[in-house]
C-alpha cells in the first residue's frame, strides 16, 4: 500500500487564496470579485497586491456573477468568491444565462461547501451545489480534496477557457497531495491499487477513503482508491477500468446522494458496466449546526462509514 502523510492540517480555502495570490502575480488578466467575504475566502493578499484588479461587490451575488460575465468581454479572467450556497443556488439563473449559456470564461470559486461549514447551520451549508452546477451545459465542476490540490486547481483553471465551478471548504483537513502536483482537469488520480473494491471519493472524503482503505487492508480487503477532483467532465475511463477489475464500487462525497458524484458514477456504470454501488453521501436532507467532525459522523461521511459500505457492497457482488 502506498503511504500518505498529512503534512499538517490546512483549510482548502487557503489553497484557493494562495493559488489566487500566485495567479495574480503571473497573469495580469486575472481579476477577483468578492461579495463581502474577502477574509473567509482568503482573498486578502490578492486584494493587497492588486487593488486595481480586486472588486468588492458587496452583498449582491447576482450582480457579482453578471459583472464577472461582462468582464470577460475585454479579455479578463474573473474569479468570483463567496460561500458555495451563495455561489450557486442564490444565483443559478445568472450563472445559467450570463455565464454558461453565454459561454463566458468565469471561474466561480465557492468556499464553505458541504456540511463542514459547521456551526452556522443549514442556511449556510449546501449539499446540492454539485448537482446544480453539473447540470449546466458546458460547466466544468471541480471539488478538490486538500490545500495543495486546491491551490494547484486554482492556478490550473486560469489556463482553461470556459466556465468553471471550483468547490472547496472551511475546515482544516489533512494536506497529503504533492505540493508540486500537475493538476489536470478531468483526470482522475489513482491513490491506491487493490482488487476487491473501488472507492471513488471527492473533496474532504478523499482522505477518509484513504483511512478506510488502510483499515480494510488490515482485514485483508484491498481497494482501488480514486480521487475524482473533477466531477464534470468525469474520467469515465478511469472509473470503468477500475470497476471492471474490482466488480463493485463505493462513492463518497460531502453532498446529497441525489445529483452528486455518486449519481454520475452510476450513470457511467449502468451504461457501460453495471456493478453494485453503495453511496456515502447525505440522504436527501438539510444539514444542521455542529462541529464539522460531529456532523460528518452524524451524517455518515467518514472512514468508518466507508468501511461499512465496502463490506456491504462486496457482499452484493
Amino acid at each position: 500500500m502506498k503511504k500518505y502523510t498529512d503534512t499538517g492540517k490546512k483549510d482548502t480555502r487557503s489553497g484557493f487564496g494562495d493559488g489566487l495570490t500566485e495567479l495574480g502575480k503571473k497573469n495580469k488578466d486575472v481579476v477577483a470579485l468578492c461579495a463581502d467575504l474577502t477574509g473567509s475566502l482568503k482573498m486578502d493578499e490578492f486584494k493587497e497586491n492588486h487593488p486595481e484588479r480586486f472588486f468588492q461587490i458587496g452583498i449582491a451575488e447576482a450582480n457579482m456573477i453578471g459583472i464577472a460575465a461582462g468582464m470577460t468581454i475585454g479579455g479578463k479572467i474573473p474569479f468570483t468568491g463567496t460561500f458555495a450556497n451563495f455561489s450557486t443556488g442564490r444565483v443559478y439563473d445568472q450563472i445559467r444565462q450570463s455565464v454558461a449559456y453565454s459561454g463566458k470564461n468565469v471561474k466561480i470559486c465557492a468556499s464553505h461547501a458541504g456540511i463542514t461549514l459547521g456551526e452556522d447551520g443549514a442556511t449556510h451549508q449546501i449539499l446540492e451545489d454539485i448537482g446544480l452546477m453539473k447540470m449546466l451545459p458546458g460547466m466544468t465542476v471541480i471539488n478538490t480534496c486538500d490545500y495543495n490540490q486546491t491551490k494547484a486547481a486554482t492556478i490550473a483553471i486560469a489556463d482553461y477557457e470556459g466556465p468553471v465551478y471550483l468547490r472547496f471548504g472551511r475546515p482544516k483537513v489533512a494536506n497529503f497531495t504533492p505540493a508540486d502536483q500537475n493538476f489536470q482537469i478531468g483526470k482522475a488520480v489513482q491513490l491506491q491499487e487493490g482488487t476487491d473494491v473501488t472507492i471513488i471519493a471527492t473533496g474532504h472524503l478523499v482522505w477518509e477513503a484513504l483511512q478506510a482503505a488502510e483499515t480494510l487492508n488490515e482485514n485483508g480487503i484491498t481497494s482501488d482508491v480514486i480521487n475524482i477532483h473533477t466531477i464534470k467532465p468525469l474520467d469515465d475511463e478511469a472509473i470503468l477500468k477500475s470497476v471492471k477489475k474490482t466488480g463493485c464500487v463505493v462513492t463518497a462525497e460531502e453532498h446529497n446522494f441525489l445529483g452528486g458524484l455518486g449519481e454520475s458514477v452510476a450513470r457511467v456504470l449502468s451504461t457501460h458496466h453495471p456493478a453494485p454501488q453503495e453511496f456515502i453521501a447525505t440522504q436527501d436532507t438539510f444539514g444542521e449546526s455542529g462541529t464539522p467532525e460531529q456532523l460528518m459522523d452524524k451524517y455518515g461521511l467518514n472512514a468508518s462509514a466507508i468501511v461499512n459500505a465496502v463490506k456491504k457492497v462486496i457482499a452484493r457482488k
Binding site: V31, E52, R53, F55, A62, N63, I65, G66, I67, A68, A69, G70, M71, T72, I73, G74, G75, K76, P78, D93, Q94, R96, Q97, S98, Y101, S102, G103, K104
Partner: peptide, 30 residues
C-alpha cells in the same frame, strides 16, 4: 450560443443586462 455576430451576451431572463454592462465597462477601464 450560435455565434451570431453583434451579440455579446445571452439575454431574455430579465434583469441581468446592467450587471453585465458594468462588467464590460470595468474591463474597458482596466
Amino acid at each position: 450560443h450560435e455565434g451570431l455576430p453583434g451579440v455579446r451576451i445571452a439575454s431574455g431572463s430579465l434583469g441581468q443586462g446592467i450587471s453585465v454592462s458594468i462588467g464590460a465597462a470595468l474591463a474597458k477601464k482596466l
